[in-house]
Nucleic acid binder design. Structure first.
Length: 265
DNA sequence: ATGACCAGTGCAACTGGA
């Protein structure tokens, strides 16, 4: 089973790029972020034509998340995170596919630091932390994938010192990510590539992609039983080099049918 | 330190992104 996360940066504006990648990569499940479209403008017809069932949680102009399943309909279980009733930003969607609970998320950017947007990011992180713990308590296979808008360590940034006061790299935010993973999640890409510089985002400015001045922002977290089934975790970096493309590249994992590794600890 | 590039909205020139 191949599960991917992709910040498309406009699902309609870049529909050609999304469909091209779906055809090429053939993922079984995809969580999408930054739809930048209200519910009524989600391109369900084109996505179904490509062979995918879909659920989505849109919003006018900004944010927006979706989940696609190849050859089936995701069973929607949640839109939005609990804990802040007045939160109107579409940043979380959850569905069950093949017996796996899959959460697709788009964590707030949080810039500029300091300020209300940064505070909202930390609150959102705290809500995710609480809800993620509830998911683990269910003792079913769970994936939390998406654009976390955090580089977890120095290895995930082309030039760490330049980013230390940015909302994507502030100590509080890295600490929040570390605490989340510490609940018992596995960062799939890092688990299989512990020492590699791997990026998932390259700025449109300053020829960032050409210089490989990237950031690792998109992560796939696995509950323990799924971590045991992890066989591959990669970034489709070449997609960032396509014409008219998103500033993020798709990230994906391959899960075996049965456990392939021993439980750590 | 700044600005470089994008999409969306809506028709000029902003906001938000990271």
């Amino acid at each position: 089973m191949k599960v991917a996360t992709y910040n498309v940066n406009g699902v309609n504006g870049r529909l050609d790029v999304l469909l091209r990648w779906l055809t090429e990569a053939e993922p079984d499940v995809v969580v999408l972020q930054e739809l930048k479209a209200p519910d009524a403008k989600f391109p369900v017809r084109e996505i179904e034509k490509a062979g995918y069932g879909a659920v989505w949680h849109g919003q006018k102009s900004w944010n927006g998340v979706a989940m696609l399943a190849r050859g089936s309909e995701p069973l929607l279980t949640r839109k939005g995170l609990p804990g802040e009733h007045e939160d109107e930003q579409s940043r979380y969607i959850e569905a069950v596919i093949d017996g796996i609970v899959i959460g697709g998320l788009y964590l707030p950017n949080g810039n500029p630091y300091p300020g209300p947007k940064f505070d909202y990011k930390l609150r959102w992180f705290q809500r995710l932390h609480s809800y993620a713990a509830e998911l683990l308590d269910l003792e079913v296979p769970v994936i939390l994938a998406g654009d976390y808008n955090v580089m977890p360590t120095d290895l995930d940034v082309y030039k760490p010192e330049r980013w230390k006061d940015d909302a994507l790299f502030r100590t509080e935010v890295r600490e929040a990510f570390r605490a989340l993973v510490g609940q018992g999640w596995t960062d799939a890409v890092r688990a299989l590539h512990p020492d590699e510089r791997i990026y998932t985002f390259w700025d449109y400015f300053r020829n960032a992609y050409g210089r490989d001045a990237g950031l690792r922002l998109d992560h796939i977290l696995l509950s323990n039983d799924l971590a045991d089934r992890l066989v591959k975790a990669e970034v489709d970096k070449h997609v960032r080099g396509w014409e008219h493309t998103s500033d993020h590249a798709p990230v994906w994992i391959e899960l075996a049918e049965k456990p392939v590794r021993k439980r750590r600890k």
